[in-house]
Design a protein around this nucleic acid. Structure first.
Lengths: 249, 249
DNA sequence: CGACGGTTTGAGTCCGGTCAATTGTCGTGG
DNA sequence: CCACGACAATTGACCGGACTCAAACCGTCG
């Protein structure tokens, strides 16, 4: 069964269409996280608004201060979202992965920049069109509200981390958050992949590269984790890590 | 013109009704911030769901971990919202004032506690009822989504503060945020009232009481602010304060 | 292989935390 | 009206965790 509306199926050359359909089916599948119970044909319509866009690691595809014209749905890869101070200090406000939506927090302009960490695919939804869709399907709006609520709760958790936790606790919390997220997507229960650099982790946790590295070393020495290269973390003692993350002893 | 639906007007004793109507009219007026363009009679219905509730300073009226049964609209006074770590470290995630809504970030249980800073009035809206109303009036939902978006943007700004700013910059930012908020409510453009203690400010900005106090003293010495008692701040040099807040020199 | 970027480790410094004492503020009651 | 007590705010002295600067190490890729 095709997800593409009939009206579109006949309006393009068959070859281009086939490629496009393939791409957009996967886009549509990922887009489920936004659409919830949206009828299939409209889901297809949403996914068809734009062809997915591919980005290389290091590409900045969204700039703080630019007019906020699109919602972006990450359909593959990992992304960092950050804000800068005039003197160059940087705070990463979040890492996004497949299924995440970018554009929930906005005004007239984007209030953050976004950069690909790995090869990334995104679907760009023009604000106007999506908003028109919202009027038609309140269920989508409900879904967006729920997502925004979750983001808010996560942001508040991050405030606790940034305001009150030690370096050690921050790293432990960070690893556990990534682990939980991975588990929800059906990944391993004890292995975490870090697609970002130590500097990125530092900018996310309010630390420096060096402090991040030292904290990893400590966790390794105390037997909580094992590092397999710099980017693969094996969580050996999750319970202990949970304690450390909340300041238990 | 009464805001109370006719069905309710006849279902209670006249005397009780009069008092209740008076209380709820003011509640309804404040509730505008949620309802936007909601038809008047339904706005009244929303406001009537519960009589406003009065709270004394220091009263905790919402506990992290309790089942999330209500949305709360602050109609008067000031409130602090916070999260605790097991060992008692505290992070205040926000200060709320008249017109603010509590309950946007939730799951099954509240993820934060809330305590009155001053005498406070709140309107409690049962989740279920409000959600039923949302289905009837998508405009309200749109409004909630917009509020959540703003909260998210503010939360991200706070992450920059907590992760990357110095004590001095945090205090300057804090004062300016309060000032802007006050201005939007039609208050003075150069005076800020602080209904919270230095310890509260510290727990909001990720600092200690002492550091907060020292930062105020510095700002006073460099001529940016004047303190009139501990709770009234006169912003003498707003431009300089803006520079300090963003790390300009 | 060597070059380059990222990571780890070490040595020393500093901002903000801790502990302690003093001052200020406000409400109460003599 | 002032004295008192309680609590908040300020100030000072010292300390320590995270930052800074610098060097060594590692893995990847040409």
């Amino acid at each position: 069964m095709s997800l593409i509306p009939a009206s579109l199926q006949t309006s393009h050359a068959a070859v281009a269409m086939a490629a496009r359909e393939k791409a957009c089916q996967s886009c549509a599948a990922r887009t489920l996280s936004i659409c919830g119970a949206l009828p299939t044909d409209h889901l297809g319509r949403l996914a068809m608004m734009r062809a997915p866009q591919h980005l290389e690691p290091g590409e900045t595809f969204l700039n703080e201060g630019d007019p906020a014209t699109h919602y972006l749905n990450i359909t593959a890869g990992a992304v960092k979202v950050y804000k800068l101070l005039p003197d160059g200090r940087r705070q990463i406000t979040g890492f996004l992965f497949a299924g995440d939506l970018l554009g929930l927090a906005f005004n007239d302009t984007y209030t953050y920049s976004a950069e690909a960490l790995t090869p990334v695919t995104v679907c760009r939804f023009p604000r106007r069109q999506l908003e028109r869709l919202l009027e038609e399907f309140p269920a989508v709006e409900r879904r967006l509200l729920a997502m925004a609520s979750n983001e808010l709760a996560a942001a508040q958790e991050q405030m606790v981390l940034l305001g009150r936790k030690t370096a050690q606790e921050r790293i432990a919390s960070f690893l556990l958050t990534l682990l939980r997220r991975g588990q929800r997507l059906g990944r391993s229960a004890e292995r975490v992949k870090l697609p970002m650099t130590r500097a990125d982790i530092g900018d996310y946790l309010g630390l420096t590269t060096e402090t991040v590295s030292r904290a990893f070393t400590n966790l390794r020495r105390c037997g909580c984790i094992a590092l397999e290269g710099a980017c693969n973390v094996h969580l050996l003692d999750r319970d202990r890590l949970e304690e450390l993350a909340e300041g238990g002893e």
